[in-house]
């Protein structure tokens, strides 16, 4: 199971990113553990300056803006 974290301090784009990943996971039947990280210090511990950031299994795969659906599908199928 993939562990996915969405880094963001509560902005709309962060919520949209979380919802998008959840949608794609359900649509593709991929099991994920989805978590939102809102604390600044925790966010910065990934060296991410632009949020939302996406972390999959401990690695930052995206920073800044809502990722495209294609991109999310790629992450989940990888």
């Amino acid at each position: 199971m993939k562990e996915i974290k969405v880094l963001g301090t509560g902005c709309a784009n962060c919520k949209n990113t979380l919802a998008l990943i959840d949608q794609v996971a359900q649509a593709t039947g991929v099991e994920v553990k989805l978590e939102k990280v809102e604390d600044l210090r925790s966010i910065m511990s990934y060296g991410v300056m632009s949020t939302p950031g996406v972390v999959i299994d401990g690695k930052v795969v995206h920073a800044g803006g809502v990722p495209s659906r294609d991109k999310v599908e790629q992450w989940l199928s990888a």
């Binding site: 210090r41 910065m44 511990s45 990934y46 060296g47 991410v48 972390v55 401990g58 690695k59 930052v60 795969v61 920073a63």
Partner: peptide, 11 residues
């Protein structure tokens, strides 16, 4: 890309 590095509370 980046990985996690736990940070001390900022001074």
């Amino acid at each position: 890309m980046n990985t996690v590095r736990p940070l001390e509370e900022a001074k």
